[in-house]
Design a protein around this nucleic acid. Structure first.
Length: 460
RNA sequence: GUGGUUGUAGCUCAGCUGGUUAGAGCGUCGGUUUGUGGUACCGAAAGUCGCCGGUUCGAACCCGGUCUUCCACCCCA
């Protein structure tokens, strides 16, 4: 055999069974999106580099796949720049396009570009692959699908409430019980930073706080100290570390801590609004939990922050996330348009459902009836019956190669067996002459001779 | 981007401190069975030991590089 072919790091092939399972997740999410009134759009796989660069922070820029210009791109780089060997400076000269890194920024671009044709508030959903030059791990790929739903052009908190319900509906429909929807608010994080005198170090502060679950209270304090957050401020955080329990209980503690911060108080108000509404409306199977350490996507979120973690016992990063961004389109020149949205990580959801064994068995439906091919005369006769079966909505097929010298019957039966085809029809010379079909049930091994009408009935 | 880990037949994996022709199970193909699959028995095919280079009389095994896998950071879905 020649050199075995391979695919790039972090990419995957999907076999028929995997595609069926993925489609099951896609269609479940899609139908929930549509139930909530979202409309689909699609955007190109790649965008102009300046649309994407700088939107995800320094870290994000590093992870964007850049596409080389066509033609003799190096000849257009001037000698001084080339001699400098600085990748960051040369990259913009030789690459003017890049693969989409998420669906939110291209959506913002779409909204700005088509603002005159869009009826606001605009509720769109989008399910497309995105690419990141990340180092792969479990549940972490370089090509993966995001399923996003966003609303732009409304700053109503009812949207946040609806998104919590949407999360709940999707995960309930997928059979993932007891997921936890963690919620926080950027204004609360800003408020806390303000109270402890670290407003200018908001990012360092939240990044450290976010690690509380992982590295513990002491390490978090150490990290904050090392980022030049004053000890006096860290001391004020003490009540925060002991925040636990109910949503309402945490809110009460936060009211104490944030009593001097206008922004913080606004954040508390928003959280209370959402929580009260959800309490009244109820959730099917998910749980809404306040998590003050939740600090994701700080580059553009301004209000609510969502993250859905995998069910207890499954080792997996978040399977969904989202939040409110007051001015996402501002970077493309359209001011004062508020947006809020959530995202589902299809590939991770797949892994979780697989690990928990929650895929329904019925989703990999394929051929229901296989006709054994005895020879050309019989094949033609069989195809007439197959045509009628198909018209009646039965998935039927003829084994393409005929039996020669009486051999290969076994091969055809085996084929049906391996593909889990439940019925086989034997249509040989004998049957053809008497116009009956021998139907074999592959599970029981029973055989019956039937006419076409009875055959259709039997396999339906 | 940092540190570690992994790669042997289609698949899952053995292979001792370097020593003849690299093994097993499953799968595949053929036969027992020329109109009957799953079970059983018999037999066969299938490997550049990820790739490139080095050390050695001799390398799947040791060394370097590279790609890939998984993991911890970073970050994230």
């Amino acid at each position: 055999m020649a050199q075995k072919p391979s695919i790039p790091k972090g990419t995957r092939d999907f076999n028929p069974e995997q595609v069926a399972k993925r489609n099951y997740i896609f269609s479940t999410i899609k139908s929930q999106f549509e139930t909530f009134g979202f409309q689909p759009i699609e955007t190109p796989s790649f965008e102009n580099s300046d649309t994407l660069m700088g939107k995800y922070g320094e870290e994000g820029d590093r992870l964007i796949f850049k596409i080389l210009n066509s033609g003799d791109y190096l000849s257009k780089v001037n000698d001084d720049l080339y001699a400098e060997k600085n990748s960051n400076k040369i990259t913009p000269k030789i690459s003017e396009k890049a693969l989409r890194y998420d669906l939110t920024v291209p959506f913002a671009r779409y909204v700005v570009q088509h603002q005159n044709d869009i009826e606001f508030p605009f509720k769109r959903y989008q399910m497309q692959p995105v690419w990141r030059a990340d180092r792969p791990q479990k549940g972490r790929f370089r090509e993966f699908y995001q399923c996003d739903a966003d609303v732009v052009g409304s700053d109503s908190l009812w949207q946040e409430v609806e998104f919590v319900q949407l999360y709940d509906n999707v995960f309930t429909a997928l059979g993932l019980k007891d997921t936890t929807i963690n919620i926080n608010n950027r204004k609360i994080l800003s408020g806390i930073a303000e109270v402890i005198g670290a407003s200018d170090k908001l990012i360092d502060f939240t990044v450290a706080l976010d690690k509380l679950d992982k590295i513990g209270e002491e390490k978090v304090k150490e990290e904050m100290l090392s980022k030049a957050i004053p000890q006096s401020g860290i001391d004020k955080l003490q009540p925060l570390f002991s925040l636990a329990g109910s949503f309402d209980g945490q809110i009460e503690s936060l009211k104490d801590i944030l009593s001097t911060s206008e922004e913080g108080k606004k954040g508390i108000e928003e959280l209370e609004f959402i929580n009260n509404a959800i309490n009244t409306l109820g959730l099917k199977s998910a749980k809404l939990q306040l998590d003050v350490t939740l600090a994701r996507g700080l580059n553009y979120y301004t209000g609510a922050i969502f993250e859905v973690s995998a069910p207890e016992g499954v080792k997996m990063g978040s399977i969904g996330g989202g939040g409110r961004y007051d001015d996402l389109t501002g970077i493309f020149g359209l001011k004062n348009v508020s947006g809020v949205g959530i995202s589902f990580g299809l590939d991770r959801i797949y892994l979780v459902i697989e690990e928990l064994g929650l895929f329904p068995e019925t989703i990999t439906k394929s051929t229901e009836v296989l006709f054994i091919n005895f020879g050309d005369n019989e094949a033609l006769f069989s195809l007439k019956a197959i045509k009628v079966l198909r018209e009646n909505g039965v998935n039927a097929e003829l084994y393409p190669d005929k039996i020669t010298n009486g051999k290969h019957m076994k091969k055809q039966m085996n084929y049906a067996n391996k593909r889990n085809i439940p019925f086989v029809v034997l249509m040989g010379e004998e049957e053809m002459n008497s116009e009956v079909y021998t139907l074999k049930n592959m599970n029981t091994g029973d055989q019956t001779k039937l006419d076409l009408t009875a055959l259709i009935k039997a396999v339906k």
